[in-house]
Amino acid sequence: MLLNQNRLLREMDHCGFDAIIGTAAENVTYLSGFWALPQWIRPGPQAYALQSRKGDAVDMSSIITSSGTLDLVADQDVTVERVRRYGEFSFQAGSNDKLDRASRKLMAMQAGTCFAHPIEALAAEIKELSLERSRIGIDIDGLQPGYLEKLKASVPDAHFVDATSTLRKVRTVKTSEEIARLRRVGQIAEQAVDAALGAAHAGMTEVEMARVFHTTTVQADAVPVLGCIGFGERSALMNVQPSDRELRQGDVIRFDVGGRYKHYRADIARIAMFGQNSEAVNQLYAALRSGVELGARLARPGAKASEVFLSVCEEVRRCGIANYQRNHVGHGIGLDGYDAPLLSASSKDVLEEGMVICIETPYYQIGAYGLQVEDMFVITAEGAERLTDAGPLKVIAP
């Protein structure tokens, strides 16, 4: 299960919520297991997941989604029993005796009441669950302008409270299933980097190397998401996108990459030298890696994110990059590539067991090269357990 039920209950108790509604793509998937394709590929499409209290447990209650996505509900391992649809979507029914399980489920949901508007469907579900006079948390990130006001007008006796930060907080501590998915997607990202570097040769373009990286990602049943791959001077472009720049002797190769596996994200960074080593690059890389390693030693339950940030930056400076500056040195990762916590100077976050974080130390010399060490860790009772390992600077023979 993705949902950390105990943590959700504690936060609902703390906020006095009788129910909570997810509207953003990550929160809908987290609360229900439902991956609404249109929501994930563009802003605007509406899908909601509603969780209500049931004594000392949450009731896996409801999904509200468009008629055109009912096939996804039918074909996925969703953790709800109630589905309401809005908006008509036409298709032809086949012979009942030849329908597979997903098709039968789709037809059954299609036979249910169809609402003209997503908020009408959500309001009807709130009333059906006798929540029309309840205190309800709702994340507002996925709502279209004016939709919250429409919901309040449709259920005037309910008290709606912004729960965007509440759901973000709940998602920070991962379940065992979430950690397993994050471990796997980290492994896939590392395998894809190794495959890309294994194909490196003089004259290879950034685009060609990216093609190997992403192909390996797909072959491992993950989906390409992040692919910053740059050679030489282009490696110093913070968000470099692969180009026709060809690989040359002495180039730094920088990867800031990841993929998505069963909806969960990887984010790692790797550095390699092509054809020859560089003592200057080695020293800089060692300082950056030392910062990440110190951060991993400090990352344990109860540690303040701001203190980890300050210590990592100071370690990089102590190890040779005297002018090292960053606005953050890491972040949480999960359904969102930038989950909480944030390892920054102003962060109020405190690390907890079960959080999965990326610790990173990028360094950019514009016009020369960019270097970056970034790895994924899960916080355990004993400290940070490594999910990925950048290791020493890689040197690739031409």
Rank of each mutant, 00 (worst) to 15 (best):
M1N: 12
M12C: 01
D13E: 14
H14R: 15
W35A: 09
R42I: 13
A47W: 07
A49Y: 09
L50N: 01
A57N: 11
S62H: 14
I64G: 05
S66N: 12
L70Y: 08
L70F: 02
T79W: 10
V80R: 15
V80C: 13
R84V: 03
F91I: 11
F91N: 06
A93E: 13
S95D: 10
R104M: 02
L106A: 01
Q110E: 11
A111C: 02
A116T: 03
I119Q: 02
A121C: 04
E132D: 15
I140C: 10
Y147N: 13
L151M: 06
L151S: 09
S154N: 03
A158N: 07
R171E: 01
A189K: 01
E208G: 01
T216K: 01
V218W: 01
D221Y: 12
A222N: 06
V223R: 14
V223Y: 13
V225F: 13
A236G: 01
L237C: 05
V252C: 08
F255K: 00
K262Y: 02
R265D: 06
R270F: 13
E279G: 05
R289M: 13
S290F: 06
E293C: 07
R300L: 14
G330M: 10
H331S: 05
Y338I: 05
A340M: 09
L342A: 07
M355L: 05
P362T: 05
A368V: 15
E382P: 06
G383H: 06
R386V: 06
L393D: 09
